[in-house]
Amino acid sequence: MQNNQNIPQNANEHCPGANSDQAGKSDACAGCPNQQLCSSGGGKQVLDNSEIIANLKQVKHKILVLSGKGGVGKSTVSSQLAHILASKGFDVGLLDIDICGPSIPRMMGLETSEVHSSNNGWQPIYINENLGVMSIGFLIDNKDEAIIWRGPRKNGLIKQFLTDVAWGELDFLIIDTPPGTSDEHISIVQYLNLTPNDGAVIVTTPQEVSLSDVRKEISFCIKTKTNILGVVENMSGFVCPNCSHHTDIFHPTTGGGLQLCKQYNLQLLGKIPLEPKVLLSAEKGKCIYETAPDSIAAQTYTQIVNSLLETLNEQPKS
């Protein structure tokens, strides 16, 4: 595995960029850890990304799944969106860039899978003929061993995922991200901006402790000019499997996802309840729409996908 010393472009909205004549010299560069590198011209290597451009041109829609908060269900949302899009006939790739906590292999039922190389590069692990998956979880021998990497090594692997993985032609590339607004997020946004991309789906839970972190993620998207396709409120109440009674486990004391969307003029794509059937589907690597099509969660996920397709002017292929 390569250890490319890629230096991400500063997410500050006033950053002149590593390829600018003012790189490392403008007032906005003061205090940046990459100032000396950029002023010497060393940061320009980041923008020499012709392989990424060539690979991403084969992907029609690229969607990030973001949240400033950990534990809100980004990986569950990412995996279910990928499943449902594939069930509608689209060619889908699911990329897991949560380097330190990859959950996608388990949620897709691929824990024992290994990546194989060919003349075209790394081959995604395929659930079926139109749904491929890539994660660092496929590249490590001990699944319980901590991955202790600094930012440049994480960035190098993300770049490899975009250049060395033989995704082929895709209708959708869903990218599951770690919590926060740091190295991985700056890198993936920078790389995706090399070609036209669609933007991000932001995941939150109803309580204020989650919403406060999600607001930071929205700020990140604004500063990096990342389009926000909408917000998903996950764990939006508990639905009893016996009587279907709805109870707010995480009470929306400040209005939840709906109020957040009103505050930032965003679309609320859907409110997914806590249902045991979702957990069972994720544990087994299955699509909730296939295992429990009559569940509220399955109907909500389908509504979310349909809203995204409408926003992106796409029609189901099957």
Score class of each variant (00 low, 15 high):
Leu139Thr: 07
Pro179Asp: 05
Ser118Trp: 07
Gly151Ile: 11
Lys88Tyr: 13
Ala86Tyr: 03
Phe172Leu: 13
Gly199Ala: 10
Glu184Trp: 00
Phe90Cys: 10
Asp183His: 04
Asp176Leu: 01
Asp141Thr: 14
Gly93Ala: 05
Val59Asn: 08
Phe138Ser: 12
Ile175Thr: 03
Gly121Leu: 08
His185Met: 04
Gly71Thr: 09
Ser182Pro: 04
Ser182Tyr: 02
Asn193Cys: 02
Met108Leu: 11
Thr195Asn: 11
Lys159Pro: 08
Ile174Glu: 02
Pro124Met: 12
Ala82Lys: 03
Leu66Trp: 02
Ile174Phe: 00
Gly137Asn: 04
Leu64Ser: 07
Val133Lys: 05
Gly137Trp: 03
Ser118Asn: 14
Gly168His: 14
Ile147Asn: 01
Val59Gln: 13
Leu110Met: 15
Leu95Cys: 14
Thr112Val: 00
Ile175Arg: 01
Ala146His: 01
Leu64Pro: 04
Glu184Ala: 06
Glu111Lys: 15
Pro178Trp: 00
Ile127Val: 14
Tyr191His: 14
Pro178Met: 03
Ala146Phe: 00
Asp91Val: 14
Ser135Val: 07
Lys69Tyr: 01
Ile97Thr: 10
Phe161Asp: 09
Glu184Tyr: 00
Ser182Met: 03
Gln123Ile: 09
Cys100Leu: 10
Gln80Lys: 10
Ile140Gly: 06
Glu129Thr: 13
Gly71Ala: 06
Pro178Arg: 04
Gly151Trp: 04
Leu110Cys: 13
Ile148Ser: 05
Ser87Pro: 05
Leu162Val: 07
Ala200Asp: 10
Asp144Asn: 15
Ile84Trp: 00
Leu139Phe: 05
Ile84Gln: 09
Gly180Ala: 12
Asn130Pro: 09
Ile186Val: 09
Gly180Val: 13
Val77Tyr: 13
Leu192Trp: 01
Leu162Tyr: 06
Lys69Pro: 04
Pro152Trp: 03
Gly109Tyr: 11
Asp171Thr: 11
Leu81Asn: 09
Ile175Gly: 00
His83Phe: 15
Trp149Ile: 12
Asn119Phe: 06
Val77Thr: 15
Pro102Gln: 08
Ile136Cys: 07
